[in-house]
Simulated scan of single mutants.
Amino acid sequence: MLPPLPINRFLPDRVLRHTVPLLLGLLLSGCASLEYYAQLGQGQLALLRARQPVEQLLADPAQDTTLRQRLQLAQQARDFASQHLALPDNRSYRLYADLQRPYVVWNVFATAELSLQPLTHCFPIAGCVAYRGYYQQGRARGAAALLQADGLDTYVAGIEAYSTLGWFEDPILNTMLRWNDDRLAATLFHELAHQQLYVPDDTAFNESFASFVEHEGLRQWRLSRGLPTQDDADERQRTQFVELILASRERLQQLYDSPLDDNHKRAGKAAEFERLRHDYREARDRDWYGDGRYDAWMAAPLNNARLLPFGLYDHWVPAFANLFRQAHGDWPTFYARAKAIGEQPATQRQATLQALQNTN
């Protein structure tokens, strides 16, 4: 069984994604409770039972017009993914499931009070990940409460989509259809990229690879449809926001690594989060003309666990962009070279990516 894996890039409006199978449960060790794996299996099974072939929904004139339009767009993007991006051609995202809820799973992140190291959970196939996924919000909150009682910082994040890495025929979900056209198409490219290549125990590699495929795939998708170049303003704002979070995380790491006693570290932690809020307000009012799209995220209680997802989705994107250029824009060649890097030992893989990152 795979754990619920996050799928979207983070950020209040676009970050986490991914998740879970169930028949692999027989392979699991006894390191986690049977109750936890039971809810994973039950949730995945309910999702599988909710699937319907998209082609049948599109052929049914009684179906809601908006639903049919969104599913039609998704199928066009799905065709493009296999025909032009050389991504897997299978039944994933040829099915639809309405789960009657806003999120498919809720992921629980946790850290120690004075640490940025995540509490990790290890699974066959997926490897070790920095969260646990739950199909019911109440279970996720309950798990978070137990961790808080042990003195840990926690964060519960609703996830709108996920991938089983090709173990099941993943459906388009009702939670995905509220996105705009670009994000819907980009998510399909991102998730199919995970089916193309996935390296256990290396989240930064996996998410950066899929994010590059997503970004380049979306660029080519828009070009094929005669659409203008994307407005980079939103991406620049998102990048600035992530940079604020990463800078704060770096200062916190220095604080936690310092010889100060725990009481001084706690005071420094509180001060750092106040600084982050101040820096955010300044950037919002100075550079974003008061655009408060991240206000709600920033207004919520801040802790170490809330910072964990940032940076994972973009870290090696420039390296994969350079690899794609070296492959002369040929997708099969690019995938083959990325796979070869993924098969390297972890230390060598990091060095190879760093060298690619530094390529002009």
Rank of each mutant, 00 (worst) to 15 (best):
179 W>P: 00
105 V>Y: 08
298 M>V: 09
175 T>G: 05
266 R>P: 00
286 R>H: 14
317 V>F: 07
117 Q>A: 10
94 R>Y: 01
17 R>K: 06
304 N>Q: 14
222 R>A: 04
149 A>R: 10
65 T>R: 11
349 R>N: 00
184 L>S: 12
84 H>C: 13
145 A>Y: 03
171 P>E: 09
11 L>Q: 07
309 P>V: 08
345 P>M: 13
321 A>Y: 04
99 L>I: 15
316 W>K: 02
199 V>D: 06
34 L>Q: 15
88 P>G: 10
329 G>N: 05
210 A>R: 03
302 L>E: 02
118 P>H: 11
100 Q>C: 07
57 L>E: 05
133 G>V: 03
226 G>E: 06
315 H>K: 14
28 L>C: 10
221 W>C: 14
66 T>N: 04
87 L>A: 09
201 D>Y: 03
318 P>G: 12
316 W>H: 12
287 D>T: 10
279 D>T: 13
34 L>M: 12
132 R>W: 06
289 Y>T: 07
296 A>G: 11
326 Q>D: 09
174 N>R: 05
83 Q>I: 09
171 P>C: 11
125 I>N: 02
179 W>M: 11
69 Q>A: 15
57 L>R: 04
224 S>C: 04
129 V>I: 07
206 N>C: 08
134 Y>H: 13
38 A>V: 08
350 Q>G: 00
137 Q>G: 08
314 D>N: 14
77 A>Q: 05
13 D>V: 11
279 D>N: 15
307 L>I: 07
125 I>D: 02
354 Q>V: 00
357 Q>M: 13
231 D>R: 11
210 A>F: 05
224 S>W: 03
195 Q>I: 01
155 Y>V: 05
231 D>S: 15
66 T>P: 01
99 L>G: 07
111 T>M: 07
5 L>D: 02
276 L>F: 03
247 A>M: 09
280 Y>D: 03
301 P>C: 07
323 L>F: 03
333 T>P: 03
119 L>I: 02
71 L>I: 06
185 A>M: 02
333 T>V: 14
57 L>P: 06
340 A>I: 07
283 A>C: 10
160 E>H: 11
346 A>Y: 11
23 L>K: 10
108 V>E: 05
2 L>M: 09
114 L>G: 02
94 R>D: 01
234 D>F: 06
20 V>S: 03
307 L>A: 04
335 Y>M: 06
174 N>F: 06
325 R>S: 14
320 F>N: 10
139 R>E: 13
333 T>L: 13
